[in-house]
Design a protein around this nucleic acid. Structure first.
Lengths: 310, 310
DNA sequence: GTTCCCGGACAACCCGCTGTTGTCCGCGAG
DNA sequence: CTCGCGGACAACAGCGGGTTGTCCGGGAAC
């Protein structure tokens, strides 16, 4: 399957003859003829009815044409995806399970036309991500940033755009399984388990949260994958973990896990978008507007954030 | 833009290393490495971070990946589009302006998932179209057929599935421009103009229609394209033409053409689907069901058809 | 009917890309 | 420190795709 051959096929179709198509493509008529002949041989069908005054599409050619055009568009997008200046908005969401990814998806659904490349810089710390933004390989990163607005590198801008409310995730045999809501004060006697944390960002956040309300939050311990974690949670009478309201975990029906909103106050996880100050991607402004509207709706709620986020 | 290189890129991404991907593709590790290196050179970006234990995607690689997969899917569809046995339902609509094309579009919108290739066998008479169906290059043709159910070639099945109601198309200065409906009897004094007819099918139909109601229908005369025709119609105080209710012509607002339903009785243009009896395309059954439902709703109306269609 | 010319196909040739084999190197694990 | 995995580089071979040159068929003009 040769894209050049397909491109030649489309060009010949549009020109109605090989000679003109070949001129268009900057090759000889013989080369164009060979390309199409090879394509026909590979596909096992005849695409053109050759006449003395040019060519006409056969039935197979007609059926192929829209798919051929689609292939060329796909090839064009492959190139555009990595061409600085005319590529989609490229934004990092850290992980596809947490709020930034889902918020971006909601934005995309409201703006179906826009070109968007979502990448997950798993295992890249904030410094590495900011370096990618500075270097231009990334248009923005959407993540927690303890030092927001203070030590963001020169040339970058940041904006706190989301407060992701915390919920308690517990199995059906946990003492709080049937609570409609819980308060931080009610959690002092229940250990919170957040294994697999390696990033300093969330660890610092949970340390502060534990200190503020006298909670026990265990951020060490081995991580055997999210599936193992959820299974263990479902079986346990003691374990509970925090998850963001905007996060998304899929689990089997049989696990019967519950998300219980935390209130009075609601700990929220502050998330920021960080982008290059000079020459930002045009679509980014739309996204920031979208986030602004979304964020404003949550102002005035009874929330808790660590000192460094205030 | 080489599809094999993109396929290699995706394979390496999935395998996490060149060696395994190369085995998968049946080439040597060196060849896979070269393909990806070429792709990187052409695109001007580095796609993989090479480590001692395999490779990891860079940001550019991550952004490229979904587009690369899309390209492979498009290439797959190009092949499938002409591969007998696993190709989309391929159906001929004669012209994209008339009812069959629009009905197929409505069907497609109700069944967005199906694979459909609509071809327009312009300038192919019924015999040629039926030959394509018999030969297997077409799954079906959707057209008028005077001899429906009588002289359809052996091995084919046909079904009258649509009665396309006639409407009168006139410009704003035509005497009937403001009529809400017209009857055939009221049209005896108004010449009907249907230029550019070369197919025996519609010519025969309009001859019969003219004879049945004493109309004057001119099916000869030069055809300078549909745009010229509509422009002339808009300017004329005398000219009128018939169009099918299911047809679609776009004209500038300024033309101010009107479609006036013809009633008491309504001449309808019978359209049939003709398909291969043995081993028909599976989607065709759905389409015929769809047409059946649609057709049943029009039964009992006050219609006229030529003798040969009864 | 004859001639002309356009447009496509075929043939021969040549270049360069892409694959192979063979080898080296770097890095992580033991 | 050593081993081995995995990737890169080098040299070479084969062929795929490009070019030039030529022929052929059919529509248009006379």
């Amino acid at each position: 399957m040769d894209v050049d051959a397909v491109r030649t096929f489309v060009a010949v179709t549009e020109a109605g003859q090989f000679q003109a198509a070949a001129d268009e493509l900057g090759i000889t008529q013989q080369a164009a003829s060979k390309r199409v002949a090879n394509l026909e041989r590979k596909l096992g069908v005849v695409l053109f009815a050759r006449t003395a005054r040019g060519v006409r599409l056969t039935v197979d050619g007609q059926a192929l044409l829209p798919h051929a055009r689609e292939l060329l568009r796909a090839a064009e997008r492959v190139t555009a995806a990595v061409t600085p200046g005319r590529r989609p908005l490229r934004i990092d969401v850290v992980s596809r399970r947490i709020a930034p990814s889902n918020i971006l998806q909601a934005f995309y659904q409201q703006h179906p036309g826009i070109e968007l490349d979502v990448v997950a810089l798993t295992n890249a710390d904030a410094t590495a991500a900011l370096a990618e933004v500075s270097a231009g390989t990334l248009d923005a990163t959407f993540r927690s940033l303890r030092a927001t607005a203070r030590t963001v590198p020169a040339g970058l801008r940041s904006s706190r755009v989301v407060d992701d409310r915390h919920e308690l995730l517990v199995g059906p045999r946990h003492p709080l399984a049937d609570a409609r809501t819980v308060t931080p004060a009610e959690l002092t006697d229940h250990p919170i388990w957040m294994p697999g944390m390696s990033d300093p960002e969330p660890i610092g956040y949970y340390d502060d949260l534990a200190k503020a309300f006298g909670l026990t939050i265990d951020t060490v311990g081995p991580m055997f994958g999210i599936e193992a974690l959820l299974a263990e949670l479902a079986d346990s009478t003691r374990l509970a973990m925090f998850v963001g309201e905007g996060s998304r975990y899929l689990w089997p029906e049989s696990y019967d896990l519950r998300r219980i909103p935390v209130v009075n106050p609601t700990p929220v996880y502050p998330l920021s978008v960080i982008w290059r100050a000079d020459n930002p991607h045009p679509v980014l402004a739309d996204f920031l507007d979208y986030l602004e509207t979304r964020y404003r709706a949550t102002l005035g709620e009874d929330i808790w954030t660590p000192d460094w986020a205030r």
